[in-house]
Computed example of a mutant assay.
Amino acid sequence: MSEQRFDLAVVGAGIVGLAHALAAARLGKQVVVVDRDAQANGASIRNFGFVTVTGQEQGLIWRRARRSRDVWAEVAGPAGIAIEHAGLVLPAQRPEAAAVLQAFLETDMAGGCRWLGKDEASGQLGPVQPPALEGALISDVDLRVESRQAIPRLAAWLEAAHGVIFRRGVTVQAVETGLLVTSQGSIHADAIVVCPGDDLFGLFPDSFTQAGVTRCKLQMLRLAAPGWRLPAAVMSDLSLVRYLGYAALPEAEALKARLLSEQRSHLAHGVHLIVVQSADGSLVVGDSHDYAPTPDPFSSDALDQLILDEFAAVFGQAPPPVIERWTGTYASAPGHSLVETPAPGVRLVVVTAGNGASTAFGLAEEVIGELYGVKMGDAA
């Protein structure tokens, strides 16, 4: 690798790294992205591609999600990324869930959301027909991309349209102010952003230890095309005790108590329901959440069945056949993200809440704006 100096070097080509590359490129900076893998292979492509605003934690995280959703909408067309569908349908299967959703609609996070009563909802939810239905929250602000396609296409567009240089199959061995030491020589950069995802033991391991970062393992499924189209992404009552925009509301306590009685196994493994649809009609369904510093790589049929049971409860029908299964891992810790300055001109940035696709663009604009002393995005 011939020696070259850049304005910014980004370590990691997942969504968090790409978001920082985009933010810097929009400031006219010359950017290089270094990644040890030959292609996208981690959490950034092992998810729903669901850019979730509705239900994100109130305040800063919700604002990051709103901004990230706007950036996805801005770059999708130029980057050749299809918006597969938009919005969210969240049916309330229990009176306690309806109370949570109606309380949510009274908050400042409810822009673009509305409530459908039981009778109205049953006629407008398409295939979403839970046997027990108290009403439904409808949101117009969320969107969905096919992450396996979106991440490579975003990287290709950054290269073609913004001149971002990618060094793939290159391991970063050390980071110092102004310098990356890699398996293929040194890279000099005025500023460096390290976005290692759930690589907790490579660069800056002490930062991960001190922040209490571990890994979360999830299981996901793809189901055969059912012959109908979803009106939007779908969640369920279980999501209301997991997503902090709902779960932090006082009204959520009664729902948590009921779910502990009725679905304790689901809660024990962090199982809730998200269903999104791909262009070929197949459904991406998940997921579960189990935590360990080094999770095992094995998928559990029992956990898959918990997810599929919740699918049946929400759609009022048996799920289509499973045609694909996979696991993923991401860095997990209390709070949304780890952002540190391990050396002058160096930032360590890791999303630790499993919502990188939903919040990374907003977070990256904050980090890059601070690095370069400018205001970006909604703050500009």
Rank of each mutant, 00 (worst) to 15 (best):
A252C: 04
L105K: 09
V367C: 07
I138Q: 06
M109L: 14
L116F: 08
G345A: 12
T171R: 15
R325T: 14
P127Y: 04
A136W: 06
E340N: 10
Q305S: 13
I15W: 11
E3M: 14
A302F: 12
A313D: 12
C195N: 08
D206Q: 13
S2A: 14
H266R: 11
M220P: 00
G117L: 01
G169A: 12
V367L: 07
L22V: 08
A161V: 00
A364H: 05
V194E: 03
A248L: 14
L90S: 15
G14S: 10
A38D: 14
G17Y: 03
I151T: 04
I187F: 00
V89I: 12
L273K: 05
A331I: 06
A313K: 13
R66Y: 00
G12V: 03
P95I: 06
D108V: 07
V53F: 03
R222F: 02
D290C: 07
A360Y: 01
W115N: 10
P320W: 05
A211T: 03
V271M: 11
V170H: 02
L125W: 06
L18E: 07
D198L: 04
Q305A: 11
T327N: 14
V145K: 05
A248C: 03
S278W: 01
D287W: 05
A24M: 07
G197P: 09
F311Y: 15
S139A: 12
L348T: 06
G197N: 12
R347P: 01
L88W: 05
T341C: 09
T341V: 12
I83L: 12
P205F: 13
C195W: 00
G178V: 06
H272D: 14
A13S: 11
A73E: 15
S236V: 10
V194H: 02
G117P: 02
D108M: 03
C216P: 00
A13H: 06
G335S: 13
V172S: 02
A292F: 08
P226G: 11
G185E: 04
F104P: 00
S265E: 15
T52K: 09
S139E: 04
Q58N: 05
W326C: 04
H266Y: 06
G14L: 03
D280F: 09
A292P: 04
L221H: 10
V164N: 00
P205G: 12
L203W: 07
H188I: 00
S337C: 11
E251Y: 01
A13G: 15
P205H: 06
A312D: 04
A23I: 02
T52G: 14
G77Q: 15
L303I: 15
V194A: 13
D378H: 14
R67T: 11
V241F: 02
I192L: 10
G328Y: 02
L60S: 05
V314W: 04
D304M: 13
L101P: 04
S278H: 12
A247E: 03
P196C: 09
D290P: 01
G185K: 05
L273N: 05
A92P: 08
V11L: 10
G202Y: 01
T209Q: 12
L303E: 05
E84L: 15
A313M: 09
R167A: 10
A161K: 04
